[in-house]
Design a protein around this nucleic acid. Structure first.
Lengths: 170, 170
DNA sequence: CCGAAGTAGTTAAAAATTCAAGGAGAGCTC
DNA sequence: GAGCTCTCCTTGAATTTTTAACTACTTCGG
């Protein structure tokens, strides 16, 4: 009878009333926040939040560049999605592609000066939005708890052993 | 010199190192989780997470129906987005529209029997996914903290209090 | 060196979302 | 009741994301 315990045959583990309220709050907050930041950045920087995050990550990287796959992993998005995103950012002149000398399949996404300039001009507004929407409203204890909780959830969903096949990271 | 304190002229309130780590974890967790649930539901129920949430809300409503605007507000999405979503769900036969007798502009979104059936069959798998990704990994205290934190953030972004996030305009 | 298998990245098409605009009815004022 | 404004919802186009191939290159095992 070991199969009685599989998800498909056993009694569903419904959420408690309290858990349902937590989950609803989570959905509401994440939906509203992502929407809020998307609009803020679309208005002030001309790009959605995810794209902005790509530029930030490039800016923080050595020589302002990253391999496509590596950038996709940092941003937690698919390579396909990244390809489209970089194509769009390239059209804006904020990123350029560069061939990887070591691996002829490889591409670097490189932050351009124009891209750096956009970041410089819009970063303050974006941080301010994040501060007002999140950190200003939470106690230091809550901030700490949030970090811990999100770290745990993210770890549990991390694509398994990704990076094991990325030699240049080791 | 009161304008010295506007966001555009004063020194940006950068995030502390610890806050940056919290924020990064938040982005990672929410991105991975939404992606995870989208795939789970796309595979098992043939629709993205947001659409699933619409059916759930309808199922919980009196007479399994809700005015479009009301549903949009519950789901925290725009009416435009909801229009498209309901159109798609209607094509699947899971929702139908009904005219509102009181207000000729109004429309009800009504959950069909087929829609209820999809929900019945896929709800267990979805709850299980949420349990495994979130609640199984958190202590009761963390679950409580998460609820409180998300409630605070969501409240601060509620459109009803629009302008609350623009203190420099007051 | 050869071939099989795996990896890096792109692409086209389909689906979803945003954005701006608009039609139609409700409600308010004079 | 005419005009004005506001609300409800939809629509079409543009943008973004997903999905499923697909090309080109690398690596591994012999």
């Amino acid at each position: 009878m070991e199969y009685m315990n599989t998800a498909s045959t056993s009694e569903p583990r419904w959420l408690s009333d309290e858990q349902q309220r937590v989950w609803r709050s989570y959905i509401d907050a994440t939906t509203l926040l992502e929407d809020h930041l998307d609009r803020q950045l679309q208005r002030d920087a001309g790009m959605p939040h995810v794209y902005y995050g790509l530029l930030v990550k490039l800016a923080d990287s050595p020589r302002r560049r990253l391999r496509m796959t590596e950038l996709a992993m940092y941003a937690k998005i698919t390579r396909s999605r990244l390809s489209h995103a970089i194509a769009r950012l390239e059209k804006n002149g904020w990123v350029r592609r560069e061939d990887c000398p070591d691996d002829k399949r490889g591409q670097f996404a490189v932050l351009t000066d124009a891209g750096g300039e956009v970041l410089r001009q819009t970063a303050p507004g974006h941080v301010e939005a994040v501060q007002q929407a999140v950190f200003d409203r939470l106690t230091p204890e809550q901030q700490k708890a949030l970090g811990e909780i999100m770290r745990i959830v993210a770890e549990g969903l991390q694509p398994s052993e990704a990076g094991a096949d990325l030699p240049w990271l080791r």
